[in-house]
């Protein structure tokens, strides 16, 4: 649960007083708390730890990090509760 997963914010909203957003992780979408990255906007890439965005990164960084995570067995499936669609390179040993 320690690995942060990068994703792109596709909408934001308030829920019970907290800034929340829907984040797309390479095809899997999750509701994410944005309270710790209040400057993040729709279209921003954020690194998300267990449903909470911790840092804002650029798209290239997000793609690099996702590529590394795809290589760790079950890492993304464990973090998100389901696997991502197949990686473009197909390298998911």
């Amino acid at each position: 649960m320690c690995l942060g997963i990068p994703g792109r914010i596709i909408e934001t909203h308030e829920s019970a007083g907290l800034l929340m957003g829907t984040v797309d992780f390479g095809g899997v979408r999750r509701e994410v708390c944005l309270a710790c990255t209040p400057e993040a906007e729709v279209g921003s890439y954020v690194i998300v730890h267990v449903g909470f965005a911790i840092s804002i990164v650029d798209e290239a960084e997000a793609q690099r990090t996702l590529a590394v995570l795809r290589a760790i067995p079950d890492a993304i499936a464990t973090e998100l509760g389901e696997p991502l669609p197949a990686a473009p390179g197909g390298d998911t040993r």
Partner: peptide, 21 residues
């Protein structure tokens, strides 16, 4: 609620939310 500093903010905010609710 386990983990290093990476999950601590999430767990803290969840407890705060439970408190608020």
């Amino acid at each position: 609620a386990v983990g290093f500093e990476t999950t601590a903010p999430a767990n803290a905010l969840a407890v705060q939310q439970a408190d608020r609710l």
